[in-house]
Structures are given as C-alpha cells and as structure tokens.
Nucleic acid binder design. Structure first.
Lengths: 142, 142
DNA sequence: TATTGTTATACTCTATAACTATA
DNA sequence: TATAGTTATAGAGTATAACAATA
C-alpha cells in the first residue's frame, strides 16, 4: 500500500471509530445506559469476581486514579460495594452488589446496550471480522 | 454465537477501542500532535478542498456546534482560515492556510502521527483486516 | 420561517499532582 | 521507601440551548 493510501485509510478508520463512539455516548446519555468503561467494569467483576481498583485499572489500560473515578460512580449508583482487604489494610476489594448483579442480568437478557444490539444485527461473517479486528487493535498498543 | 459470548466479545472489542483511543490521546498530548478529529478535518480540507462548518460536521458525524469548536481551535493555530461565502452571507468557507498545508505535507512525509505509524508497523494482512473492519463499523451507525 | 454560524454552559472521561494510610 | 487509594484540579471532546445574521 502506498504511504498516502495508508494514511487515508487510517483516518477513515479513525473516523469510523469516532462515529461509533459518538453514537454510543449519545444513545447512552439519552437512555440512562452506563458508559462503555462502566459496563466493562461490571462485566469483568461479574465474570472474574471481586478486584481492586488497581487491578481494574491494569485490566482496562487506565490510570488507577481514572479508574477510581469510574469505581466511585458505580459505587454511588449502588452497583458495586467496597470491602476492606482481609490482610492488607491499604487495599479495597470491589464486588458487585445484588443490584449490580441484577443489572448485569437484565442488561444481558435484554441486549440492552446499543452496541451489543447493533453488533447483533450484523451478519455472522461481519461479526467475525469485527472481533478479529479487536485482536489487531491490541497489537497496536503493545 | 451464543448471546453471552456475543456480549463478551463486544465488550472486549470496546475495551480494545478504549485502549487505542487512550493511547492516541496520551501520545498526542505529550508531543503536540493534533487530535484525531483535528487531523481528520485537515486531511479532508486537503483532499476535497474548502468546506463549511456544517459540511465538515456532516462528514464526520458531529453536531455543527461541536465542529465549530474544532474549527475554532484549528483557526487559532493558524492552520485554516475563514473566508466569506461569495453569495450566501451566512456561510463561512474554511480552507487550509499555507501553514496548514505545510503541516499536512510534513505530517504525511514523516508518518508523524502515532496511529499511522503504529498501523504501518502491522503486517499487510493485519492492515487489510483492520481497514475491512472500518467498513463494518460504518454499518453499525447506519 | 429556516438555515448558518457563534457563544455560553455543562457533562463525561481521563490525566497529573499531592496527599493519607498502610506495608 | 514503596504501594493502594483518595482528592483536587485541569484539559479534551462533545452536547444542548439561546442567540444573531442572513436567506
């Protein structure tokens, strides 16, 4: 691929990113959905069990302070709860509350986030291609 | 694909998005690169010629007011200039300045944005898969 | 009345820096 | 001295609402 075409393709890709992200935000803010990061944290806590802020930050490639804000917002909403670590007084264990778990179940059952619903409407082959791209994106940040 | 797997894959994809976007922002802010949107606007003005704020907003799927902020920032930096529309007094034509054009040329020659450089390091096949995903993302927002 | 653009304001997400408590 | 977390502050990006000028 010629250098100019590469650049043009990269910016077309970036534009596509932007379109999808702006749509996610617009839909989420007009229907009380959680943000992508908030949802991802709930999903992780459900699938892998309790974790600390630092662990969540590492898992999502964010700074601990940034994750702290996300965690505080979820805790304010009553979706997760803080518990002291049994032996290390510095650490705080985060876990889903019954309310958080219920939200996860209803969200999953209802395919309630716009993104999941939209991807679900794609053909199987498009879905496969999209998820393949996910792994390639990870390579970019290695 | 089972519903649960679909949801998990979607959130993994969203996480990948987030990682790449946070990296882009981090690199851009620490090296005086332009933001993705700002770069995309310059690229469009270079490739397709002068345009109005409303046209740029439509092209990038943003609200005119939001694009107005981007445009103002590029104008403040001296990269684009405003000219009155010859017949419609409401419209303002935006075009690259010599400084903006020079920046485009040097950016392209140096592969100077992190994203372009990172994608350039991928294998040809990965690049192809990534750009294919771009088209699929567009389907999501249709 | 409809459209283009600007201004004012606010919200979300994320970052850095400084601090406290604990190890 | 190092680590986990919190608080304060700031910046980017985008949104909505209200307005002015023009069509």
């Amino acid at each position: 691929m010629a250098q100019d075409d590469l650049e043009a393709s990269v910016y077309a890709l970036a534009d596509s990113f932007g379109l999808v992200l702006r749509r996610i935000r617009a839909v989420a803010s007009s229907s009380n959905e959680l943000s992508l990061t908030e949802n991802a944290v709930l999903v992780r806590l459900e699938r892998e069990g309790p974790a600390t802020t630092a662990e969540l930050a590492r898992a999502h490639g964010m700074k601990p302070q940034s994750m702290g804000a996300t965690v505080a917002s979820l805790a304010d909403a009553g979706l997760i709860a803080r518990k002291p670590h049994p032996t290390d007084g510095r650490q705080v264990i985060l876990a889903l509350t019954p309310k958080g778990l219920a939200l996860r179940k209803s969200t999953r059952a209802a395919k309630r986030t716009w993104l999941v619903e939209a991807v679900g409407r794609l053909g199987k082959e498009d879905q496969r291609r999209l998820f393949a791209a996910s792994a390639i994106l990870r390579k970019l940040v290695e």
